[in-house]
Simulated assay, not measured.
Amino acid sequence: MRITQGTFSYLPDLTDDEITQQVRYALDNGWSLAVEHTDDPHPRNHYWDMWGLPMFDLHDAAGVLYEVNECRTAYPSHYIRVNAFDARYHRQTTALSFLVNRPPAEPGFRLDRQEDTDRRLRYTLHPYAADRPAGDRYR
């Protein structure tokens, strides 16, 4: 199963040149960039670990790609994404978000069905990766 979160997630993985082009687009629009990673890509897990600090004053796409590659080296089996934030509205607004790294094997999710009162059905997603301890989910 392939996780589809963020822009371009239905496309094949982006090459470093394509990542650089997207970063240039974000910088040309005046957006600040940040790199995040996680080993738990559950759709409700909005809080990924940040790699370093947000790059508010960076104006070179090579610097962002350098940070992406450093994060890939440190966490080769994590999901890594680049976020671009638009500060025009004076609040944290994500203008662009895309994955730049995936683990070699993505185990997917299970849909758990629960019967509730008045014949209601409730569904929850259970990631197979969460059956293993944090930090060891994609080895």
Rank of each mutant, 00 (worst) to 15 (best):
W51F: 15
V35H: 03
R91D: 06
D118V: 00
Y138P: 01
H78G: 00
H126C: 10
Q22M: 07
T93Q: 11
F8Y: 15
A134Y: 09
T4V: 14
V35I: 15
L99F: 06
D131P: 09
I80P: 02
R81D: 03
V35N: 03
Y79G: 01
W31R: 05
P41D: 05
M1C: 13
A34P: 00
V64N: 12
Q22P: 01
T38H: 04
H78V: 03
E115H: 10
N101F: 02
Y66S: 13
V68I: 06
G6S: 11
I19R: 01
L65K: 04
C71Q: 01
R110K: 11
A61Y: 08
T117M: 09
T124K: 10
R44Q: 14
S77A: 08
E67F: 07
F98I: 08
L121S: 09
D86P: 06
E18G: 04
F85T: 15
W48T: 03
A74C: 09
F98W: 13
Y89W: 07
V82Q: 02
H126S: 15
P54E: 01
Q22I: 05
Q114P: 01
R91F: 06
G63V: 05
Q21H: 07
D131Q: 12
V35K: 06
A134M: 05
V100Y: 00
T7N: 15
V82P: 01
Q22S: 02
M55F: 07
P107H: 05
P41W: 04
R139S: 14
P104V: 00
H46D: 13
M55N: 03
L27G: 05
T15Q: 07
A84K: 04
F85R: 10
Y10P: 03
G6W: 13
G30E: 05
A87N: 08
L33V: 15
A61I: 01
F85A: 12
M55L: 15
R120A: 13
P12Q: 12
T7H: 15
Y47A: 14
D13V: 10
P76D: 01
H59T: 12
T4K: 15
Y66K: 14
L125P: 06
T20F: 02
L96E: 06
N69M: 10
D16N: 10
R137N: 04
H42M: 12
H126F: 12
I3E: 15
L99S: 07
Q5A: 14
V100Q: 04
H42N: 11
R137E: 00
P107R: 02
A130T: 12
Y25R: 05
A74W: 06
R91M: 05
L58Y: 14
E106Y: 07
P54M: 01
F8H: 15
W48V: 09
I80F: 08
V100S: 00
S32E: 03
Q92T: 05
V68Y: 00
D16P: 03
Q5C: 09
D136C: 07
S32D: 04
H126A: 14
G6T: 12
Y25I: 09
M1V: 11
D40T: 00
S32A: 08
V82M: 01
F8R: 14
C71I: 04
R91L: 04
A130W: 11
M55D: 09
N69I: 03
A84E: 03
D118A: 02
